[in-house]
Amino acid sequence: MTDTIIALQNVSKWYNPAFQVLKDCTLAVPKGEVVVVCGPSGSGKSTLIKCINALESFREGEITVDGVRLHEKGVNLPKLRARVGMVFQHFELFPHLSVLDNLDLAQIKVLGRGKQEARTKSEALLHRVELSEHANKFPGQLSGGQQQRVAIARALAMDPVVMLFDEPTSALDPEMVSEVLDVMVKLAHEGMTMMVVTHEMGFARKVAHRVVFMDRGEIVVDAPKDAFFGDVGNERAKLFLSKILQH
C-alpha cells in the first residue's frame, strides 16, 4: 500500500457562481484500497467520482490519477479513461450490441487488441461474472442485476488500475443487489483498487478499508472502516448513519 492511485487536492467545483457542488475536497486512495463514499443525495458524491475520470470538470484544485495530472492542460483523456474502469448507476450497456460485443468494442478500438484476443478476454470475464450463457444476448434481454455484472466485466476488460462505482446497486430491484455486490466483493478480495459510491453499508463493513462521508459538497469524514462504524464522532455522519441503518 505505497503507491497512490488517486489523489485529490483541494478540489472545488461550481455549477453556477452561486452553487458550489464540491468544496475543497482532499482525498487519497492508495493502491489496493477499497474506499466507500457515502452521504445524503445531493452531497456531491457522484460529481466527485466523475471528476476522477474527467467526465466532470472541476475549477480549482488538483487531481492526479495513476500519475496523470488531470488539472494540467493537454492531458490525453481517452488514454487515462481507458485505465480507469467506471460502472454507472444505470448500467449504460450499449443496447445495439450483444453482450460479447459490449466487452470487445473498447478492447479493439482503444487498446488495439485483435478480435480473437479481445474475444478470449471477454469470454473469460463473462465466465467470471457467471454470465457465459448470456454472451450472445442483447442487454435488453437481461435482468438489471445481470446487466450490471456485464457492465463490471466490460470495465474489467480494459485491465483498469482502479475501478470507480457510481451507485452501482441503487437502480436495481432489491433481490438483484446481492449478485452485483458479490462480484464487487470478489473483486475487492483480489486486491483491486476501488472507489465506490454506495449506501450499501453491509458492503462497506465487509470489504472497505476506509469510509468517506460527504455532505453538501464537503468531505466531512474520512476514516478507517472500524473507526467509522465504531464511533464516527461527527454529528452529521451519525445522523446519516442512524437514518440508513434504522431498518
Partner: peptide, 22 residues
C-alpha cells in the same frame, strides 16, 4: 441518452469513436 456518451468516453473511446460506434 447522455449516459451512452459517458459510457463510451469512460471506456477510453474518443468523442468521435463514441459517436461513430455507439
Amino acid at each position: 441518452a447522455r449516459g451512452q456518451n459517458a459510457a463510451g468516453l469512460a471506456l477510453g473511446l474518443t468523442g468521435g469513436q463514441t459517436m461513430r460506434y455507439i
